[in-house]
Amino acid sequence: MDFSEQELKTAYRTMRHMRNFDEIGRREFMAGTLPGFMHMYCGEEAIGAGVCAHLSDEDYIASTHRGHGHCIAKGCAIEDMALEIFCRQDGLCHGKGGSMHIADLKKGMLGANAIVGGSAPLAVGAALTAKTRGTDKVSIAFIGDGASNQGTVFEAMNLAVVLKLPAIFVYENNGYAEMTGVDYHCGSGDIAARAGAFGMPAHKVDGTDYFAVYEAMAEATQHARSGKGPVSIECIAPRWYGHFEGDPQSYRTKEEIADLEKNRDPILLFRDRVIAETGLTQSDFDAIDAESLEHVEKAMAAAKAAPQPEPADLLTDVYEVYD
């Protein structure tokens, strides 16, 4: 395994932060303290972590409505994220984005997006910026399996190929477009092959395997940064929860969900493999678990107690004023 112990600990901590942030957020939502909607990323952590491990603050990502994990993987401060999802004054977007529109441009995080397929045109625009300015930066569009059917995504992929833009289309195939199974809604049955038909390299990997995602992304970033144009990666990682928190999930069985948590947990799969192949131990990971839980719990508690925006704040951040 060609990773240092520190790299492995960092990757694990990132995924554990993702899981804790969403699980604690889910708890607060169910208690009625968290406004808006919650769309859980649990079960898909290895995708965001494996992709963003190759990115700097100057690279771009455009997210989906299931975007908390992407924010954490891109380096957004958990404290500021917690303030934002509680819609507090000092949040990343001053409390105006909430869960579904959270963004941090300082980290190259162009925003979670409630528009299905909305990430692809944004990411391609950022990729065009990088190419026009002559940088080696890349732009990532995270796309759900449902959004893979959107015309905006097809147009974005075609433009990226035509202009040879440094864009990487990461498909998070979690099995369902809202409540519709991918086997039904995807006519071709193969998201990666459909993306490849636009004329770019297209890969398909196990999205619960951090190392598979990491390796595919390493190849993709090298390709895109060297001026060879876009790449697509389909990552298959079933989601644990419903489309949104409160979704009764009548379209699948409890046995299916239980099996995912037992056999397809990307965090436990990572942990087991690393312990088997390196000098890291259970106690090393237990320590990270405890540290992460304390970190996220404190951030959420502080956010919940933070001041609400003032009424006058309603009129700020509405229009850009140019000199």
Rank of each mutant, 00 (worst) to 15 (best):
A127R: 02
G146K: 02
F169L: 04
A216C: 05
G118Y: 02
I233L: 00
F169H: 04
F86A: 10
Q308C: 10
Q308N: 14
M200V: 04
M30A: 15
D90F: 09
L105K: 15
V205K: 01
C71M: 12
R252G: 08
E7P: 05
G189Q: 10
Y251K: 00
A212Q: 13
H39M: 00
R273W: 08
P309C: 12
P201T: 10
M300I: 06
P248Q: 11
V321P: 04
S188Y: 12
A216S: 09
I191Y: 07
A302D: 14
A224V: 02
A11K: 04
R27Q: 14
I78W: 10
V205G: 05
D209Y: 11
A276R: 09
V205T: 06
I85K: 05
G111I: 05
T278W: 08
I275N: 13
Q222D: 15
I61R: 08
V124N: 03
Y60Q: 09
T278M: 10
P166Q: 09
I72H: 07
D289S: 13
R19T: 02
T135L: 06
I191N: 10
F142M: 09
L293G: 01
A220N: 03
A49F: 06
F198C: 01
N20A: 14
I24F: 08
T208I: 14
N149W: 05
E28S: 03
D265N: 14
H17I: 15
A103Q: 13
K107E: 04
G125Y: 10
A11N: 06
E44W: 01
G69I: 01
V124C: 04
Y322I: 14
L83K: 12
V161L: 02
I267A: 12
R225M: 12
F21H: 06
K131C: 03
R264E: 12
I267E: 07
A218T: 07
E155D: 06
F29P: 01
Y184R: 15
G48Q: 01
A103R: 14
E320W: 10
S188E: 12
G279I: 00
P35D: 04
S250I: 00
Q222R: 14
F3D: 06
A31S: 13
K298D: 15
Q222I: 09
I143R: 05
A212F: 13
T64G: 00
A195S: 13
P248S: 12
R66L: 04
D57T: 07
I24A: 03
Y176C: 07
V116W: 04
F21E: 13
E256H: 12
F37N: 07
A305D: 15
